[in-house]
Amino acid sequence: MTALLVLKGIDTFYGPVQVHFGLGMEVRQGQIVCLLGGNASGKSTTMKIILGLLRPRAGSIFFEAHDLAALSTPQIIRAGIGSVPEARRLFSAMTVRENLLMGAFARSDRAEIARDLERMLELFPRVRQRLTSRAGTLSGGEQQMVAMARALMGRPKLICMDEPTMGLSPLFVDRVLELIQAVNKEGVTIFMVEQNASLALAIAHYAYVLQAGRIILQGEAKDLARDPRIRAAYLGGETEPAA
């Protein structure tokens, strides 16, 4: 399998604070890859540098043959990356339908867009019922589905998801995870940042664990799920098993 997205030697700063220290990782075609880590580990910042919302001070980011460091955010989206931002970031005063069509903003094939919209409504039946509602009136779970459908409307090769389960009720969390898997089965590669390690590992193929801006652990998701060091990364240094 070829690597779709490759990050190498990334150093990122917020003002004087260094967030990433020589970060390197790969997202392979067709996989679900997740980046785990606790609060303030640098997860969301990783998403920002991939999408061009923040520029690293050193290192390279390649998506296929595109050097993302040289592209603006809209250009990166047009290169084939879809984004499901943290906290969804729907256009709250626009209708659900308008939000979905905004996802296809970079495309101009009208007939195909209409077909994709229909396909999204089949994939997310719940969204169909709310098609004419303002996005701001939806529940968190519904918003998450709209955000995923919106990203898919751009026909991306890779979707970047920032904390897709944050703030959702357990019922919706399971549903969202199933949908991520379903989308992946259709051939879309998924890169997700998650705080919720056990959930993410349950559906991912490969995972990286970030702590204080450094990758401290990586491997096949099924192996990592049993690794006690994951828990240490979240809850602190003492790793003695519970009684």
Partner: peptide, 16 residues
Amino acid sequence: VIEAYLGHRAMGEAAL
């Protein structure tokens, strides 16, 4: 607390 930080499903037994 462990669930809040690590997720709603239990981690592998070894981790706990």
